[in-house]
Amino acid sequence: MSSRLAPPIRRALLLSSMPVYLLLYAPLALIAIFSFAPAPGGQAASLHWYGALWHEPDVLAALRRSVMLALGSSIFGTGLGTLMGFGLSRFRSRARSGFAAAIPSLIIYTPIIMPSLVFGIADLIFFNLLHKATGLFAAGLLTMGIAHVTFQAPYVALVVFARMSGLDPNLFEASHDLYANGWQSFFHLTVPVIRPAIIGGFLLAFTLSIDDFTISYFTAGPGSTTLPIYIYSAVARKGVAPDINALATLMIATVIGTGLLQYLFTRQKERRPMPRAGD
């Protein structure tokens, strides 16, 4: 396929796409460069601002909350989403069609297509009313976590559903035929077989949580500032600042590093079909 394009066209494609790659990375690179700005009163590039971060308790607390939120919501969201993808793939009646049969899909797609802002404000109001009525659900990490699970679960469900669709339906009957009851079949067949989808779904859920700002922002409470909210408030207040550059650089490096590692890891696995020891 690649050989079908004439050399001049390929050259033109290279010349026109390189600026796009540059555009994608230049702003991020610039942040990184500025993060090594000299210390106040100094001249040379320094790690001063990274050191400053380390001594900033708000940053460390925000980091801790971000990780806690992402981990907690991803575990819960992966569980709910896996069950949902599994159930819809296995037990939804194929015979029926029409609006009633489409309701589960409509519900699952709602969090995906709902604009984040509407999502966030709807939850802001809902938790507000709920708190007034019950005294529970005060805005904070709990409400943020609930909102995160709400948008993570559908994505996990889609990943698991896609994996389930690729399986021979006889597999499940074969497990029952071989004396497995419903739960045994789920834990000895379904879970191991869709494990890559579950892990992939979990990583996706984690990324979605870390990446989210808008929904977190509207469901957050006074004591639940996460890293993106911390940066947003700092930037909205005082604009560009070197310590924010350092913090942003660390976040960019983590994400890009994790992304590349994940890519290398999955590539490695694809090349070698897994030899498994007996149990």
Partner: peptide, 17 residues
């Protein structure tokens, strides 16, 4: 799963994992 009967499927349905 409570029947002393076993099936050989057309697609074989071998567990891939």
């Amino acid at each position: 799963h409570l029947r002393a009967v076993n099936t050989v499927f057309q697609s074989y349905a071998l567990f891939p994992h």
